[in-house]
C-alpha cells in the first residue's frame, strides 16, 4: 500500500499534521468548532490528493499491481481508511488531552 499510495499518504499526512497543530493553538472553548473546520479541510485535502493521484499516475503502472494479484482499488480504499483512522485517533487524543488539561 505504501509503495502504491505513497504520494497521497505523504500529502494527506502533512495535511493531518498541519490541521492538528492548528488545534493545539486555539483555546479549549473554540476547539469544537475548529475540529469541525479542520476535519472538513482534512477530508478535502485527502479527496484532492486522491483525485490528482488518479489523474497524474500512469494507468499502465497499475498493471504491475494487477499482475501480482493486488487490487489497486482495494489499495486506494485501504489507504483512505488508514489515513482517516489515524486522523480521527489523533484528533480524539488531542481533544481529550486538552480537555483534561483545562
Amino acid at each position: 500500500m505504501w509503495m502504491y499510495m505513497r504520494p497521497v499518504l505523504i500529502i494527506s499526512g502533512l495535511g493531518t499534521l498541519s490541521v492538528l497543530s492548528s488545534l493545539m493553538l486555539v483555546s479549549a472553548e473554540a476547539m469544537g468548532d475548529t475540529a469541525v473546520m479542520t476535519t472538513i479541510v482534512k477530508v478535502m485535502v485527502l479527496a484532492i490528493s486522491c483525485l490528482l493521484f488518479t489523474m497524474l499516475t500512469s494507468k499502465d503502472r497499475r498493471f504491475f499491481y494487477i499482475n501480482v494479484g493486488i487490487s489497486t482499488r482495494k489499495l486506494t480504499r485501504w489507504a483512505i481508511c488508514l489515513d482517516l483512522a489515524v486522523y480521527f485517533i489523533l484528533l480524539t487524543t488531542i481533544i481529550l488531552i486538552r480537555h483534561a488539561a483545562a
Binding site: 500512469s58 499502465d60 503502472r61 497499475r62 498493471f63 504491475f64 494487477i66 499482475n67
Partner: peptide, 8 residues
C-alpha cells in the same frame, strides 16, 4: 498477466 503497451 497483461503486458501493457507502456512500461508498467
Amino acid at each position: 498477466k497483461y503486458q501493457a503497451q507502456k512500461p508498467f
